[in-house]
Design a protein around this nucleic acid. Structure first.
Length: 734
DNA sequence: GAGTTTGAAACT
DNA sequence: CAGTTTCAAACTC
């Protein structure tokens, strides 16, 4: 039997995890301001499904045994295109929390109904035991109803080869270990929208009903859960994520008849450019039933911020190149990281998937764990916003606050998943309200004994780090290297991207020694970034110390809710309106040194500053002089750099052209002819050129150009003469 | 590179 | 909230 492993979850867009969004889709909750405020149109949801799906299929299945019925979870999303998660011939069985195998149907049971077991918080596909219910449902001809209380259906993980794929539902009830996460476990009425591929209009909300009834969905040989993601026309449009079931051609039942679905919500999609892509996760080895215990679905409340993110989220999965799309980035190490960039949020959502040690991968009969061997990091760059921007960009970009952590917390706490959610160091203002919902210490950490699958939300910087270094090991809680911190990892050789990245996003490495990089003293931490290539000691600002880090973040926010907001507020337009949010308190620097945060930010002090002896104001002569000098110095440096570059280029070019001639003769190179006399003559030429430029009132730059040009001429003459002399000598010798 | 200065952050 | 301490960056030599 195939079970969808929690890793399957990783391929899914974050919004899938957002149960709140699910609720929003069918009906707007009064308390859900974010969603309500936004013009959410449920009708738009089905629209998403019909987007052109000519998509490339990305197979994450490491195992190639395609002959066997496999579970395919495909997610495709492009602008206006739905992301489809299809589970084909899925024999998805869910086991109880305890790990009890619910059903043991093998692959042969392709017709098994698609069921969702609220008790197990899982979705069961093709569960044999539930055949009756399925039949009843089929006979009724009505869409399958997923009955659950306070639970939301989540696609938890990507199945690993040979491992069962489990669609897991979050636990509603509080359980041990829930204490770690936000304690909000109040039951929520699950609301599901079911959209079948073929009939988009058939978006059907499935409302969970009380009781732990296992609802069997339509039996199909091939069942596809499709998550449609649509690009909202307006930024205000709520992001909805819909998981629709698609019936493959081989499906016995009509697609429209059964909307087996999984809860989802419509996600807005950012980049319309990319064609939809589909990631198919196949589970070749599905013969054995496997307990899913410990497989959890981590829902990141942080993902919801993308709701309001103006740029639509692009859920396209697959292509590496598409920056605006979820990109799968292969890591050399086994741990898999999926990275998702949310525009404006500066965060990457990284699912850390570490191999489960106990898993018997590839063994058809043996119990399989949910670890993914081939899971690859996925990056969704939904917006043009660069991740390197300050945590809380001052720009007016509006982001929808993530759904209350209640649901997320619920999932995190109750489920024993091996995923862990790492809170971003930089709580966006939009996000922050949700953060506040978390109880202190709510780490969004995996439940005790959590496993290797990690689901983390980390700053973009760190994602970049991960991308840069293939050697980075993102270990799960169980598999952490003993002492290899992220900072150490970050120092590992970068994967070619380092240069470009460094160029595009320079950041000073910190040198923290005592703060563990978990206080605002540390610029990295203050900027919501993980330390990377830093010189810090005992750094805790990394994934390995996520607990401590989250705690530190919480502490900072408790102390100052604005702690992670940018200090320099951005004005309406132009930099002139920028000003320090709190103002400086300089006493001795006159606010004309970089000690002053205002001066450092190249802005003038304002009335809110409490500085003494401030000279950093518009009319300040000191400031003007300083700025003038600074500008002049900068210009000079630039000119000098350009001149040197040009000269070097010319010399190099000349040598390259002349070298062959000389080398052919086997004699000395032309520059060896630069004797003292030649040098003096050259200098005279250059001086004369400078005089000429001065007499003609040429600008400095032009003068430098003229001098350089003359120098080039001199070199040419020298080389020419040298070459000629050499040729003559060669002819004589011959 | 070592030592000093500085002001924000953290603490009391 | 004010004063003090801690901290790491900026600066100087």
């Amino acid at each position: 039997m195939d079970v969808v492993s929690p890793e399957l979850n990783s391929l899914l867009p974050d919004e899938i995890m957002d149960t709140e969004a699910i609720e929003d889709v069918p009906q707007s909750q009064p308390d859900e301001t974010a969603v309500q405020s936004e013009p959410s149109d449920d009708t738009s949801v089905p629209m998403e499904t019909d987007t052109p799906l000519a998509s490339e299929n990305l197979s994450l299945c490491s195992d190639a045994t395609s002959t066997e019925p496999t579970q395919a979870l495909t997610t495709s999303a492009t602008t206006g295109n739905p992301i489809a998660v299809s589970i084909s011939t899925a024999t998805i069985t869910t086991d109880s929390v305890t790990g009890t195998i619910v059903s043991t149907s093998g692959l042969q049971k392709l017709t098994a109904p698609f069921t969702i077991s609220p008790a197990n918080h899982q979705i069961i596909l093709n569960k044999v035991a539930s055949s009756q219910a399925t039949e009843a449902a089929k006979s009724a001809g009505t869409p399958q109803v997923i009955k659950q209380e306070g639970q939301k259906l989540l696609v938890t993980a990507i199945g690993k080869s040979g491992q069962p794929i489990v669609l897991q539902l979050p636990h509603t009830g509080s359980k041990p270990g829930a204490s770690q996460t936000s304690g909000d476990t109040k039951p929520q009425t699950p609301q599901f929208k079911v959209v079948t591929l073929g009939a988009r209009s058939e978006l059907k909300p499935v409302v969970g009903s009380a009781g732990n009834q296992v609802t069997t969905l339509q039996p199909q040989q091939l069942k596809t859960v499709q998550i449609a993601k649509k690009t909202p026309t307006s930024s205000a449009a709520p992001i909805k994520f819909i998981i629709t079931k698609t019936v493959n051609s081989k499906g016995l039942s009509s697609p429209t008849s059964v909307p087996p679905v999984i809860a989802g919500r419509v996600l807005t999609q950012t980049s319309p450019v990319m064609p939809p892509r589909t990631i198919t996760l196949s589970e070749p080895h599905n013969t054995s039933i496997q307990s899913i215990a410990g497989k959890k679905i981590a829902i990141s409340p942080l993902k919801t911020p993308s709701k309001n993110i103006k740029p639509v989220q692009s859920l396209a999965v697959g292509g590496v190149g598409g920056s605006q799309f979820k990109t799968i980035i292969p890591l050399a190490t086994q741990p898999n990281v999926q990275q998702i960039q949310v525009p404006g949020s500066k965060f990457h959502y990284v699912r850390l998937v570490t191999a489960t040690t106990a898993s018997s991968i590839g063994q058809a009969s043996g119990p399989s764990t949910s670890s993914i061997q081939t899971a690859k990091p996925m990056v969704v760059n939904t917006g043009a916003v660069r991740m390197s921007v300050p945590i809380v960009p001052a720009q007016p970009m509006k982001q929808v606050a993530p759904k209350p952590l209640t649901s997320a917390a619920q999932i995190v706490t109750t489920t024993q998943t091996q995923q862990r959610l790492i809170m971003p160091a930089t709580p966006l203002p939009q996000i922050q309200p949700n953060f506040t919902n978390l109880r202190p210490g709510t780490v969004l950490a995996p439940a005790p004994g959590g496993g290797n699958v990690g689901y983390a939300v980390v700053p973009a910087q760190y994602v970049t780090q991960l991308q840069q270094s293939p050697f980075v090991t993102l270990a799960g809680s169980s598999g952490f290297p003993a002492s290899t911190g992220v900072q150490t990892q970050a120092r590992l050789p970068l994967n070619g991207l380092s240069t470009a990245e460094a160029t595009s996003r320079p950041r000073k490495p910190c040198n923290c020694t005592k703060s563990q990089c978990l206080k605002l003293y540390c610029d990295c931490f203050a900027n919501g970034e993980f330390c990377n290539n830093c010189n810090c000691n005992n750094c805790f600002n990394n994934l390995e110390h996520e607990t401590e880090r989250l705690k530190a973040i919480k502490t900072c926010l408790d102390r100052n809710p604005e702690a992670f907001k940018p200090k320099i507020g951005k004005g309406k337009e132009g930099e002139s309106d920028r000003r320090h949010s709190k103002g400086c308190n300089c006493k001795r620097s006159g606010c004309l040194k970089n000690y002053c945060e205002c001066y450092e930010a190249k802005i003038m002090c304002s009335s809110i500053c409490k500085c003494i002896g401030c000279k950093n104001f518009e009319e300040s002569p000191e400031r003007k002089t300083l700025m003038h000098l600074a500008d002049a110095a900068e210009v000079r440096v630039q000119q000098q750099t350009a001149a040197k570059t040009k000269l070097s280029s010319q010399i190099s070019d000349l040598l390259m052209r002349t070298t062959p001639v000389n080398s052919s003769g086997g004699g000395r190179l032309p520059y060896t002819f630069v004797t003292k006399e030649v040098l003096e003559a050259t200098c005279e030429c250059l001086v004369e050129q400078a005089k000429k430029a001065e007499q003609t009132f040429q600008s400095q730059a032009e003068a430098e150009r003229m001098i350089l040009e003359e120098f080039g001429h001199c070199l040419m003459r020298i080389i020419s003469s040298a070459g000629k002399a050499k040729a003559d000598s060669a002819s004589i010798s011959c």
